[in-house]
Amino acid sequence: MYTETGRKALRINKAIRKLKIYWPFAKSSMLQALAYKAGALFMNVYMFMSIAISYFLWSAIFDSSGSGMLQGFSKPEMLVYIVISAVAGALSRVYITEDIGREIVDGSIATALIKPVSYVLRWLFSAFGGFVVSLVMPCWLIIAGMIFHGLATGSFAPTPAGVAVFALSALLGFAISFLFEFCFSLLSFYTTYIWGLAIFKDAIVGLLSGAAIPLAFFPGAIRGAIEFMPFAGINYIPVMIFLGKIQGLDMLAFLARQAFWIAALSLAVKILWGRALRRLVVLGG
């Protein structure tokens, strides 16, 4: 018979053991991301390019509009939205679809499955490595720059609490993104052309997550539906929290919505993974 504290200690021990087993997957994906320094550098250049395009485009849009506000955004707010949305996009980007797809198509998933390691957790940690790299590399530099810029011009002043909640919401966004990508990559059990499907998916997610344009720009009824979908939790919700456009009780409700989607998608992963595995046929060895 364990005492209550004993049981607790046991549970913590178990968690630490799990972390020890899976942490190397996170570490190796971090090292991989940093190994090709030119590659990492060019990824950042690419990100800055996308920010620059949106920046100049929105500047021109606001300058041509004549009014200072568009759908509740002032020009400085929109520029912050673009930059922070790119940060949230980098944090939530999960590069597992192609890797999982390749393992399924070429059959190397068989060797992965006979190891005493959970397939889902392995990729979760691997993706988390990417999250950490994005967190350390460009993102905080940009966020620090934005805060400084906001304070200097007085246009926008994020509070430390706001930044902290943004970080939490972005982490939840990463979890939603991971679970969705994992479900998506299981399509490799049914088609070998996952690359073509990924283009399709990226376009849809870009639009519905608020990365392409704030969801506030969608017309009323559609907007409500899109805001409820899981994709809003990947980008739109964290960014709106950073901007202070979602506050107080609303903020709690939106965080709860993110948590709800994490629970729902976890369940979906469980069900779909079991189903897909039954379909798996690997020839030869």
């Binding site: 088609t191 070998t192 052309y193 073509g196 990924a198 399709f200 990226d202 376009a203 870009g206």
Partner: peptide, 19 residues
Amino acid sequence: LDLAIGIAGFVISQASGLV
């Protein structure tokens, strides 16, 4: 099927720019 997926992927991808 792959052909249809590929073409549809690029149609949607460009259409989202239009949206």
